[in-house]
Each structure stands twice: as structure tokens, then as C-alpha cells.
Amino acid sequence: MLSEKELNRYKHPIAVPGMGVQMQEHLKKARILIIGAGGLGTPVAHYLSAAGVGVIGIADYGVILEEDLHRLLIFNMQDLRKHKAKMAASRLFSLNPWNKHYPFLIQVRPDNARQVFQGFDLIIDCSQHRATHLVVNDACILDNKPFVMGEVHNWTAWWGGFNMAPASGAPPASYRCNEFLLDDFRNFDAGAMGATHGATALLMVNEIIKYLAGVPGLAGKLHTFNYLHHQFDVQDLHSDAAKIQGVKEQGLLSADDYGLEIVPDVED
């Protein structure tokens, strides 16, 4: 139940047609883990917290660097060299103390993913790292958890809702089933725009809130954007039963199998 102060805080989103008190209470019950407190993860976390998502976990083993501040707008100069996950949780608490924000100063990897994911009902992978995507995909398939992934490369971006049953009744799609769709949207040239990360995060959060409210549109869809030429597209994700069954039979692989370089545990 929302307190009187929360009802006042959220009175404007509650007034939006189709939302109301019941949907706001549903947001409060949601438990979301965000992987990566960088240019994509921090604005996603910021707007989900502001929207009233009750529990937000933030997993990141890195520290805040000055050259990244142009796209890490929840941090300040005095935060340099501090842990991103811990400072993100602190900033989000100062924004919305009605929610719970838990920092995980870890690298998500095969030996901890399923344990970390326990207790969360939606995983959002903002790591922008293929090996981590594969670990997240396999762990979520094994534990039947829905997940969202996204990346931003220069002027282009993509994101989609995976392991979710589409409104069409088609079987849920995994990340492994759809990598062939993503190759054209990967641009590994140097450079990162703050605005493209922020814009992508806002579009993701809008669809995630709709998903939590039971509105179709996120599940089984791949959204792609070219901000330079203002070209947007949405297409259906594909489900490959053999690949999904292979994950269920093999379980999580080794870090080497994923091509994941293990980093030392963070000393707090």
C-alpha cells in the first residue's frame, strides 16, 4: 500500500489515464536488477527510481572516471574514483527515499549470476558487453526470468525484451536466438555521446514501466535507432527452440567459454 506521502509524491503519474493508484502500487512491488551503472544504466536506474519502482539493485564493479561524466549525469566531480554502484544507490536514495536501492560491487559472471538474480523479477542488462549478455541470457533462461538488454554505439542503439511471452502467443525469444539481428547495429569505433545514451534509456524505461503495468509492447520486440539520421524501427524477435533447449541442458558455462575476462573482486 502507498503511504499518504507517496500518494502525494506520485499524484501526477497516478493521474495519467491507464495508471492510477493500483498501477503505482504495482510499481512499488517491482524488484529490478540493473547491470551496469554507466551511460545507459544510470539514467535507466534514475527514472525507474523516480517512477517509484520499489526495489532496485545496481551491479557494477567499476569506478567513476571524469571522461565518463558527460553521460553519467547522476554523479558529480566529488564522486571521481568512487564505486559506481555504491554512489548510484546513494544518489537514488537522495532522489527517492521511499524505494530501496541495493549496490552490488561485483562483476556479473557465471559463478554468481543466478545467486545475484534471486529475488529480482526483472533483469536489465546495461553492461553493453557481449560476454556479459550471454551470461545474463543463460542465467535468466535457467531461472525463467524476463530480461531487457540494450546497447548504444556512437549514433546507433538497440534494445529488446527477452524471455518474455509476447502478446501474439509466440514463444519467448532469447538473446542467443537473435544475435544475427544485432551485428549491423554494433559500431565499435571510439566515441560515446551522452545524449544518445540518455535518449535510449528514457525509451527503455517507458517500455519497462508499460511492461510492469501489463501493457503489451516490450516482450519479443527489438527496437533499433539511428539518431544521426532519425531512423527508428521495431521488429519481432525470433525464438529458436534448439538454442533455448541447449542452454537448459548445458547450464551456465565457464568464463572462458563466454569469452569473459574475470576482474578481481572489488575492495570496498
Rank of each mutant, 00 (worst) to 15 (best):
L2A: 15
L2W: 15
K5H: 13
N8D: 12
H12K: 09
P13H: 05
I14Y: 08
G18H: 11
H26I: 15
L27Y: 15
I35K: 07
L40D: 04
L40I: 15
G41V: 13
P43K: 13
Y47V: 12
V53Q: 09
V55G: 00
G57Y: 01
D60E: 05
D60A: 07
Y61G: 04
Y61N: 04
Y61R: 13
V63Y: 04
V63L: 01
E66T: 11
E67A: 10
H70R: 08
L72W: 03
I74M: 03
K82C: 06
K84R: 12
M87N: 08
A89I: 01
S90F: 15
N96G: 10
N96T: 03
N99K: 01
F104D: 00
F104C: 04
I106E: 04
V108A: 00
D111A: 14
R114M: 07
Q115N: 15
S127I: 03
T132D: 00
H133P: 06
L134I: 12
V136G: 13
N137V: 01
C140Q: 12
K145P: 05
P146I: 00
V148F: 08
M149S: 14
G150Q: 12
E151G: 11
V152R: 02
H153K: 04
W158C: 11
F162P: 06
N163R: 04
N163M: 15
P166C: 00
P166H: 12
S168W: 02
G169M: 06
A170R: 09
A170T: 01
P171T: 11
Y175I: 05
Y175H: 01
F185M: 10
A190C: 03
G191L: 08
G194T: 10
T196F: 10
T200F: 12
A201M: 11
M204D: 05
M204F: 05
V205Y: 01
I209S: 15
Y211T: 14
A213W: 13
L218K: 03
T224V: 14
Y227E: 02
Q231E: 06
F232M: 04
Q235F: 09
L237S: 05
S239I: 02
S239G: 05
D240E: 07
D240L: 08
I244E: 05
G251D: 07
S254A: 10
A255K: 12
D256A: 07
D256L: 05
L260E: 09
E261A: 02
E261Y: 01
I262G: 02
P264S: 00
D268C: 09
